[in-house]
């Protein structure tokens, strides 16, 4: 996996609570970034910032009863971990930029954060296929990632 050294030696603590509304997050601008994703990316159903070492969301916005974002955070953590493991087994010395899952009516976009302070996190975006522009959404999600890095 991507982690280096024993878990205990890592300086960052994993957050063991789900901040449903993105409040009281460890990075002050999480909420702003999620809000920006929700409003500026056309067709967004829900968005979450997820720690894939624990499978828990640091912040979520949108979703609702048709899309439980804490379930999505936990489930997509397994998706990311499986892909990381597969690449390791294949001997690919590369990193994942993003993962696209196309459903009948939705796009699910997973973008792994790359900056030093944010390793082990991914942005998860669920889009309504009929309203979304995939190329634009990918581009804008990159911008949301940049917002988190400030």
């Amino acid at each position: 996996m991507t982690s280096t050294g024993p878990r205990a030696a890592r300086p960052r603590n994993t957050t063991h609570s789900t901040h449903r509304k993105g409040s009281a997050n460890p990075m002050g601008n999480t909420e702003t970034a999620l809000k920006d994703a929700m409003t500026s990316i056309e067709g967004t159903i829900g968005v979450a910032l997820v720690d894939y070492s624990s499978g828990m969301a640091l912040g979520t916005l949108g979703g609702g009863k048709d899309l439980d974002l804490s379930v999505a955070a936990a489930g997509n953590t397994d998706v990311v971990r499986a892909k990381v493991r597969t690449m390791e087994l294949l001997g690919l010395k590369d990193e994942i930029e993003d993962i696209l899952i196309t459903l009948g009516g939705q796009y699910h976009l997973i973008r792994l954060l790359k900056s030093r302070g944010h390793t082990g996190l991914f942005l998860y975006l669920a889009l309504d296929k009929s309203r979304a522009n995939l190329a634009m959404a990918r581009h804008q999600l990159r911008r949301v990632e940049d917002m988190l890095e400030v």
Binding site: M1, R7, T14, H16, T18, V50, S53, S54, G55, M56, A57, S70, V71, A73, A74, G75, T77, D78, R81
Partner: peptide, 11 residues
């Protein structure tokens, strides 16, 4: 185990 997906564990 240490690498457990805690989110899923809870669910």
């Amino acid at each position: 185990l240490p690498r457990t997906n805690v989110g899923r564990l809870h669910l």
